[in-house]
Design a protein around this nucleic acid. Structure first.
Lengths: 339, 339
DNA sequence: AACGCTAATCTAAACGTTTCGAATCTGTCA
DNA sequence: TGACAGATTCGAAACGTTTAGATTAGCGTT
C-alpha cells in the first residue's frame, strides 16, 4: 500500500479510503491510485487488515469425520454459504476425540476466527468456556451439548427413529436389533429413546441383548451385527443409527451367509446417493442436509452481522423416512417386497 | 502480551523470548511470566504474529467437489497431515468452474496462506501466474495443468483405464461404452487415451457413438447411459470414468428395465466404501487415496520447510483394478459371475 | 477583505507481535 | 582495581493496515 501511495503521489490514508470507500476521493487521485495499483499489481494484505480491524472474515468448522457422507454434505453446504458471504472456512476433523477437538478449537481461536460451527464430540471441554466468554459466536451442529447454551441446529432424532422403528413394527417385526454410536452425544441418546418409545407404544418388550453400541465406524457396525446375528433368537430386522456402521452391517449379513431383505431387514440413519441404486435399495432416515447446513450458516452469519445479544436459538428439523426395499413384511404369508 | 509483561514486571521482549525460546530467560522471570500468563489467561495472537513473521501456518486447499468421495477421502488425509504439522487448512470448493476457482485462490492468497494444494479446474487461469511468481508454493492434485510447471501428484490414469477396459475385453466384450467428464482436464484426457489404446491393442474399432461425455454429475451419467442404451446396437459393457456419474449409469440401467450384470456390465473409476456391499458389487479402479493425500501434503510441507529451489517433482501413482461382480463374461456359454 | 463552510487530503497513532542492537549486571582475569 | 566476557533484559522499530483528527484548498457571504 505504501508503494502504491508513493507511485500515485498520495498518502496511504487516501489509498485506504479509496479501497474501502470510507471517504470520497477526487476523480483525479482515484485515477492515479487505480493506475498505480494496476502497475504494481498490488493486493491488500488481509492479515494486516485483520489485525487492525479485529476480524478475519474466516470461520472455523469442526466435524467428527469428514468422510461420513452426512457431514460431507453439510460441510459442502456450509462452505458454499460462507463463500457467498465472503468468508473463508477453516475445516478441522476431530476424529470423535475430545482432546483433538479442544486442540483444534484452540488452533482456530488463535487464528482469530470470527465464529465457530461445531459438530461436537465428547462432553463440554473447552467449548463451554468459549460460549460463556461470548467472544466468538458458536453454533452447534447436529449435536447439542449439555450445559452449553448457544445457537444450534439439530434433527428431531427421537421422532425420526420412532417413525422408522414403528414402520418396522408395522411390517410385523417383533425383535428389532438396534446399533447405536457411543451414547454421550445427543443424537445417539435421542435416537435410542425413539427406539425404546416405538417398542413401548407397540407394547413390545425392550430386549437389552438386541441393543449394541459401537464407535461409529464400519468395523463397529460389523462386529455389532455379528453379535446380533449369532443370538440364539436372532432379530428379524436391524436398525443402524449411523451411516458408516450400516456398511458393516451389510457386510456382516453377507459374510454370515444371509441376505437382506429375505432373511433380515435393515434400515438405517442418513441417506446417501447410493442408497437407491443397488440391491437392496436401503430404507433410510434422510436428514435435510441442505437445510441443516444453510440454517447453521444463517445463524452464525446473523451473529456475525452484529446480532450478538439475542437469546440462543435452537432449530429442530424433521427427518424423512425413505422407504425402499431393504425391509420385508413379516407375516403369515410372507410376500416379497424386493423390486 | 503487553498485559502479561506488565503483570510480570517485565518487557514484552522478554515475554516473547520466553514464548518462542529465542533467548534464555532466568528461572525467576520465567516463573513470574508463566504465572501472569495463567492469571490473565493470555493467548498469543496468531494474526499479529503472522503479520510480523510473514507466515500464517495455514494452507489453502481447493477441490472441484467435496461431495465426490474421492476428493472427500483425499481432503481428509491432507487435513490430517497438516494438522499433525501444526498447520490449519482452508478448504474451498470450486464447483468445476474456473472463475470460481480463480476467485477462491485470490481469497486464499489475500489471507496469506503459506501454500496451496489445488485439484484444478478449467485451464490455467490465475494459477499459472502464481506458480511463476513462486511466492507461495503450489502442489497440483489429481490434475495436471498445461503450462503450469510445479509439484504434482497424479494417477497413471491412462494405464488404469487401459487395464480396466482390457479386462472387459478379456471377458468377451466387444462394444464397450465409455462415459467421460469434460476432457479439458488431464485425468479425463488420459483416461480416454487408455480406453482407446485398450481397444486398439485388442484390434477393436473405436466407435465414436459409444463415447459420451458429461459434466461429472449423476444426472450427466444418467443421460449418457440413456443414450448408450438406446443405440440400435447397444454396448454390452459400460465404463464410467467418474464416480458420481456411475450412480446415474446404474439408475438409467434400472429405469430402462435392464439389470447389471445380466444385461449389461458396468465398471467405473474410483472405489468407495459401498462398492462391495450391495448387489452388484461394483468393479472399480481404486485410487490410492491415502498415498495421494500424503504425498501431496509431503511435497508441500517440504517446500514450506524451505526447500524452494528444487525442480518441480511429479509423482505418478498406480491405480488398482478391484474386480468384483458387476461385469459378466460374454461368450458362447454365458456363465454367471455374480455371487 | 475577512470569514466560515465543505470537501479533499494528510499525519500519526494504533493493532499485537518479533527482533535487532543496546544496556545492564555478574563474575573473572590480569 | 579496572577491563572484559557472557548472560539477561530491555527499548524501539518494524510488519501493513485503518482511522481519528488536523490541515489545506476552494468558494460563496457579508
Amino acid at each position: 500500500m505504501l508503494h502504491v501511495a508513493e507511485a500515485a503521489r498520495v498518502s496511504v490514508a487516501t489509498v485506504s479510503a479509496l479501497l474501502n470507500g470510507t471517504a470520497t476521493v477526487s476523480p483525479e487521485l482515484t485515477q492515479r491510485i487505480e493506475q498505480a495499483i494496476r502497475d504494481i499489481g498490488y493486493k491488500r494484505n488481509a492479515i494486516a487488515r485483520s489485525l487492525k480491524m479485529g476480524t478475519t472474515r474466516t470461520i472455523g468448522l469442526t466435524v467428527p469425520h469428514i468422510t461420513n457422507p452426512f457431514f460431507t454434505d453439510v460441510v459442502s453446504v456450509i462452505q458454499q454459504a460462507f463463500d457467498r458471504a465472503g468468508y473463508a472456512v477453516m475445516l478441522c476433523c476431530t476424529d470423535e476425540d475430545l482432546n483433538t477437538q479442544d486442540e483444534q478449537i484452540r488452533l482456530l481461536l488463535d487464528r482469530m476466527v470470527d465464529g465457530l460451527i461445531v459438530a461436537r464430540v465428547g462432553d463440554g471441554g473447552i467449548l463451554k468456556d468459549i460460549v460463556e466468554d461470548a467472544n466468538v459466536p458458536v453454533v452447534l451442529l447436529d449435536r447439542l451439548c449439555e450445559g452449553v447454551d448457544t445457537d444450534a441446529v439439530v434433527l428431531d432424532n427421537r421422532r425420526a427413529v420412532f417413525d422408522a422403528v414403528t414402520y418396522l413394527i408395522h411390517l410385523g417385526h417383533r425383535r428389532i436389533g438396534y446399533i447405536t454410536g457411543t451414547s454421550d452425544i445427543s443424537p445417539m441418546h435421542d435416537r435410542m429413546i425413539g427406539y425404546r418409545e416405538a417398542l413401548q407404544v407397540a407394547g413390545l418388550p425392550v430386549a437389552e441383548e438386541l441393543v449394541r453400541s459401537g464407535n461409529f465406524h464400519e468395523i463397529d457396525g460389523y462386529n455389532a451385527t455379528m453379535q446380533l446375528l449369532s443370538l440364539h433368537d436372532r432379530p428379524s430386522a436391524i436398525f443402524s443409527a449411523n451411516n458408516p456402521m450400516v456398511i458393516g452391517t451389510m457386510k456382516a449379513i453377507r459374510d454370515i451367509g444371509l441376505s437382506c431383505p429375505e432373511d433380515i431387514s435393515v434400515a438405517c440413519f442418513d441417506d446417501f446417493p447410493w442408497s437407491d441404486v443397488f440391491v437392496p435399495q436401503l430404507t433410510t432416515v434422510a436428514q435435510p442436509v441442505q437445510a441443516i447446513g444453510e440454517q447453521a450458516a444463517n445463524l452464525l452469519l446473523d451473529r456475525l452481522a452484529g446480532n450478538r445479544d439475542a437469546p440462543p436459538r435452537k432449530l429442530v428439523l424433521k427427518g424423512r423416512l425413505m422407504i425402499r426395499n431393504s425391509c420385508r413384511p413379516l407375516g403369515a404369508v410372507a410376500q416379497s417386497v424386493s423390486a
